[in-house]
Each structure stands twice: as structure tokens, then as C-alpha cells.
Design a protein around this nucleic acid. Sequence first.
DNA 1: TATGAATGAGACTTCATTCAT
DNA 2: AATGAATGAAGTCTCATTCAT
Lengths: 213, 213, 213, 213
Amino acid sequence: MVAPRPAPLAVVETDDSSKRRQILDGARAVFMDLGFDGASMGEIARAAGVSKGTLYVYFADKNRLFEAIVQQECLEQGKAVFNFDTGRDTATTLSEFGRAFIQVLCRPEGGSSLRTVMAIAERMPEVGRRFYDDVIAMTIGRFAAYLDSRCAEGELAIDDTTLAASQFMEMCKATLFLPYIFQAAAAPSSEQIAYAVDSATRVFLAAYAVKRS
Amino acid sequence: MVAPRPAPLAVVETDDSSKRRQILDGARAVFMDLGFDGASMGEIARAAGVSKGTLYVYFADKNRLFEAIVQQECLEQGKAVFNFDTGRDTATTLSEFGRAFIQVLCRPEGGSSLRTVMAIAERMPEVGRRFYDDVIAMTIGRFAAYLDSRCAEGELAIDDTTLAASQFMEMCKATLFLPYIFQAAAAPSSEQIAYAVDSATRVFLAAYAVKRS
Amino acid sequence: MVAPRPAPLAVVETDDSSKRRQILDGARAVFMDLGFDGASMGEIARAAGVSKGTLYVYFADKNRLFEAIVQQECLEQGKAVFNFDTGRDTATTLSEFGRAFIQVLCRPEGGSSLRTVMAIAERMPEVGRRFYDDVIAMTIGRFAAYLDSRCAEGELAIDDTTLAASQFMEMCKATLFLPYIFQAAAAPSSEQIAYAVDSATRVFLAAYAVKRS
Amino acid sequence: MVAPRPAPLAVVETDDSSKRRQILDGARAVFMDLGFDGASMGEIARAAGVSKGTLYVYFADKNRLFEAIVQQECLEQGKAVFNFDTGRDTATTLSEFGRAFIQVLCRPEGGSSLRTVMAIAERMPEVGRRFYDDVIAMTIGRFAAYLDSRCAEGELAIDDTTLAASQFMEMCKATLFLPYIFQAAAAPSSEQIAYAVDSATRVFLAAYAVKRS
DNA sequence: TATGAATGAGACTTCATTCAT
DNA sequence: AATGAATGAAGTCTCATTCAT
């Protein structure tokens, strides 16, 4: 009896093999455009400029390839650091964070990783959970930490900063995100984003800012 | 040669033929559970208790059947009227609306129509748009009309009630909806919902309520 | 969640659906000619005169189709009753049984079920075991029962009739079966069979016949 | 430009190049375990500890590699000389030969070359024929020669010693070989082998031994 | 109208083989 | 000679759809 074949270590372990990157790039485009089921391995191979067989040299199967895409998306979105510099005015920080946040969510090129992952979450819960943890919860956490610091300065008064962070982020989406994700409207313009985010900022501060006498 | 019995066209045209309803019910269950691609016509036929062939008597193809499901979902969710009775206390109305809204969004049985439609929106934009218009925009519209009436009463002061309506609805989701939809957490409990919605209500009123002297 | 689809009972349970028989016939030819791995579902479909999809309406997968073929082969070879009429001369009975036995083993058309099943036995032990039990062991058993009756008559003196039965059957193969199965010789002629079987009969009787004074 | 090192052609021609031997050893293990179709070139390369490419340096394709394996098996099984020393008692010689023969046929480790070659014989008749000639027919031939010598001594009286040789060898298999090869039983124990072979020896001698007065 | 048997295109995946290094 | 990355043909299986009854 023959032992199961070990993965070709040098290639699969390394994340920066050029072919591997080529495949990931092609696959991301197709997966994000068509969803997990809509994307075929043939299409992915064509988009990546490799043969179908090569896909399977680098990834065990379609699921594994998809997971790698999501994993990569997590890493990249995780790196998309928002500016929580405490030296700036709070209103400005909120407002700029909100804009950046919505811009990440509503990319004009279409092909949302949020949608793609959400769509598959029922059948691949582990993938959904990891995406939530690594991308969404992480951002909420960082923002909540910023709010904590503002509270410590006596600028804000918030019981539950995690809740407040999430509230602000959700509020920024108002009138923008759902039309975008349901294809009822194109990606919002900068003006639309500014309008919604600034309003959210005002609401947030009205509720949580400490009134100076 | 026997004269062909005149086809009772009315049956197909009418939306309440019993077979048609049977199919819609079965199909909805399967589509919402497994998503558009995950659902097979065979499974749908079984769930509906009819033969696969019969599916094609009532619906031209899988897409058309899916569209009918979404259409039906729109109608039913449209009927799910929230209580915007103007006789009640505003804070209570907000709070109860928020609870009902989140409960619709995060059903413990899983199988979200939101997710299912969102997932397909890139490939079937018309379906996504219609769902947004008929379900989401409509609810926002009704809630905005309620806010208008509160403003007219001098109780609230809101520039853009549509934006405000959307802000409140988004805020209610804070910390609850995304973990649920990404399968990072089970459906929220009543207590969790109350906690988030009551906080959202306070934030909303802090920003928009007219201060009585 | 949808329950697993029940097999289309009326068709699969019944063994005599015409399409099913058509498939079994085509599949047997291809499997016996090319072996399990050598046979492709496409080839089988073509041999059976049905589409590839139809194969899967009647059989869950290639393994199941193969098992059905072997099962059918068991039944048919089981029915191939040999004449163990006790009224005839023992030497004649042995000799005719031996001839019939070798003729079953070495069919001139080629395509031996023995070879095909033996080949797959390591990977599908259950299939091999069942074939051995239903076809080979059963034949040995019937022949042994005949030998028992001859012993009871005082015509033969055998300690272990099962062993003796097997010995005779193996001996009949001498110089015929292995060349045939290894394709080193064509199927043996009647003369060759007669020569080998008659010799086996003589050896057998020399060892086991009771000498009358 | 560096002058190409003269290719040591002799290596490929010679049968004992170390790499070639390495490949043959690995390939034999895999082929005998999994059969021709079940064995993949990748698995063989791994078992041999060389790269897939190297396989094709030494063998034109999978068929040629397999043929070389069988050829090698022929040589080795040919070398497995049985003891036909004429100085020993005939019954002992038969009995020990029978035991050794069955032990070669029914190796407890499984992975029978007999099965593997038999399985492929219909698709690769040349391979089957050569195996029969070089291994089986050769053994029968040697044993027949021994029987000839016993006849010359007046100890045995046999018309057709080739037939008799084959008869004895087949008889030794009785109740042991088929259950083993069909996976209906484990490899036979020494006791089981002794029982069957001793019985075969008695039958053989009963038929062919010259009665001394 | 309703059926369910049948289809065939297309999906994922494997693997023998090639080729640049 | 040796490698291992890359290929593409071919295999198994699924499923939306059609059609005769």
C-alpha cells in the first residue's frame, strides 16, 4: 500500500510562487464576478492564463482554491489600515474613516468579496466565519479601540464602544450599501458618500459626544 | 379526431392555481436553503411534490421560477406591515419596529432570502433591483413617512427622513446582522436584539428628537 | 434542509425494466472485454445504445453498475446447473461435468468474468468474495454432494469430498485454463478438453474409486 | 559553449543501472498492489524515489515500463528453482514442491503478479503470453522433466508427463488458491497447505505410481 | 394537464506525457 | 541525466430541459 502523496512543499507552502499568484489573481476575478457556483474551473484557468490541470497542481480542488482566495482577501482587507491617529479632530477622524470604509465596501468595479463570501456562508460556514472574524470584527475592534481612547480623553461617553463602533459603521451604509449590493444603483459617488457619512457622523456625535460647558 | 379541450389558460395566468402555489412553496424552501445554483430542479420537484416535467408547465425555466419566487417573497415581505401607528410613543414605536425588523432579518431557521437574492444580484441584476425596490426601499419609505409625520408634529427634527430611516434600520443591525449572515454566530436572542435596538433608539433620538424646554 | 432523494423505486427495484436490461447487457460486454478500469462509461453507454445520463438513472455510479453486472453473472452462472444425475455411470458423470465446466471457463468469445472479477478483487473485496461464494463455492458444493452420494453407495471412498471435488475441478483445467486466461492460447477445442478431462477422470477414479473384487 | 558530456548510453541499455533498478523496484510494488490501471506514474515515481520525468528517461511509456516489470518478474520467478533433486524420495519431492508452489502463489502480503498480469492479458496479450511461457510453462516443463526421469526409473508410469505435471500443480491449489485470489479468504496457513498438498500427492501417486509386486 | 424517462452539455478532476532548465 | 512544472485529453458524474404518453 502506498502512502498518500505529500503536497509539493516548495510550491504550495510558499505564497509567492509566480504561477500561484497568477492563479489567485485570475481566480479572484472570476469568483468575485460570478460567485462560487457560477465560476467554473475552466473559466478560472482561462482568466489566469494557465491550463486547467495547472490549477490542480497548486490547489487540491475548487473549494481549496476558493478558500485561498478568501484567505488572501482577508489578509489584504486586513492590511487596509484605516487612520485612527488620535492626534486629529474626532469628527474628522470619524468622517474620513466612514468614507474610506464605504469606498472599500462599494467598489465601482463591482465584484464584491462581501457578497461572494456571504453567498457561500451557509454551505461553507468556516469560510464565512473566518472572513467575519478577520475582516469585519477586526475592523470593528480597531475602531472600538479608537473610541475607547476618545472616551479616556473625556471627549466621548460610551458604555459599549464595540456596539457604538458597529453602529457608526452600519449607519454610514445608510442609503448607499444595499442599493449597491442589490444592483439597484451604481457604486455611490464621492458626494453621495460624503453626504451619508457626514450625516452619520453628526448623529453619532450628537449621541456620544460629551457636551463641554 | 377529438377536438382539443380548450386550454384553461386562466389557470397558468392566475397566481393561485393550487399546483402553481405548491410549486412556489416547494421552490422557495429549496432556493432559500441552498441558493440559486445549489438548488436543483429535481430537488425542487420533490419538495413541491410534483414531477420535474410539471415544473416546466408552469415556469419556462429555472431562472423564471426563481424570479417568481423572489417576486412572491417581495409581495409577502411587503405585506409584513410594521406598526407605524402614530398614536403610540415614538420611542416605543422605534424600538418595536427595530425589534421586528431584526427578527425578520435574522430568522433562527436560517435560509435568508436576503442572502439568496444578494448572492445572485450580480448575475441577475433585475431580480436584485426589484427585490431592493419592493422590499427594502418600500420599508424605508414607510418608515420615512412615519418620521415625516413625527416631524410634522414637531417631535422630531430631520432634514432627510429617508436617510434617517435608513440610518436607524442599519444601526439596529449593529453587532447582530453580520455575524448572523456570515455564520459567525447563531441568530440573536431577544435579549441581544433588545439591547442593540434600544441603544439604536437612544442614539437616534439623541440626534433627531426636538428638545422640549 | 432537504431529505436525500429516494431512488425511483418502480424502475430500480424491478430487475426486468427493458432499459435496465439493455444497459446491463451493454455494460457486461464492455466490462468483460476491457476490465473495470478499461471500461469507460461513455463506451458502455454506446454499447448499450443509451445516453451517458441514462446510465446514472438506473445505477448510482460505475461501481454499482459493475456490482450489478457481477451479481447478474453470479445468478446466471448459478443457474448453469451441471448434470449430477445419480442414475448415470460415475465415470460418465465426471467426464461430462468436467467438459461442461471447462467450457464455461474457457469461452471462445473471450471476455472472462473470472478474469474481470479476479482483477478487481483486491480493490473490491466484497465483489470478489460474493463471486467466489455464489459461483465457485456453490459449484464445488453441488459436486461434493454428488460425491457424497457416490460414497454412500460404496462406489467411491473419499475422506473430504469438498477437497476432492475441488481437486477434480482444478485438475480438469490442466494445460487448458492458464494458457487461455493468459492469452497464450486460444480457447481449447473439444478434443483438447476431452483429452484433459478424461485424463483427470482416470486420475480421480484411480485415487478414489473403491476396488471391487 | 561547453562540450556535452557524452551520454553514457550503456547505462540505459544495461539492465542493472542503479536508477533503472530503483525504478523497477518502485514500479513493481505499485503495479502489483494496484494493478496496471490503478497505478499512476506519479505514484510510481514516488515509490521509486525519482521524478516523474526520470521515468521517461528509462522507459518510453507506462506500457513499456509495465512490460519491463513483468519481464523482470518472469526472470525472478524463473530463478525461483524448485528442488527436483532426483536423489530424494518421490513422494517427498512432490509434496515439498507442491508446498513451495502454493506458497509462491498465495503470498500473505497480497499483491499477486499472477492477478496483475492475468488482469491485463486481454488488453496486452503479448505480456500475458510471455508471462505464461516464461513462468508457468517453464515450471511445468521442469516438473515434467522430473517426472520423465521418474518414469525412466520405472517408478512412475505416465503417458503425458506435461499433462500430469500440470494436473498435480492444479490439484495442489484445490480449496486454497481461488478463495485467496478472490479475497474470500486470507492466505492459507502452512497446515492448510500441507493438508491440500499431501492429499494431492496421494491422488497423484495413486494414479501414476507403478505398483511393485 | 401531468408525468418521468431520457438526454447531452458541461462541471470537476486525474493523469500520462512533454519540455525547458 | 534528472527534474518538476505544465499540459490537455479523457474520465466520472450532475442537472436543466425535452418529449411521448
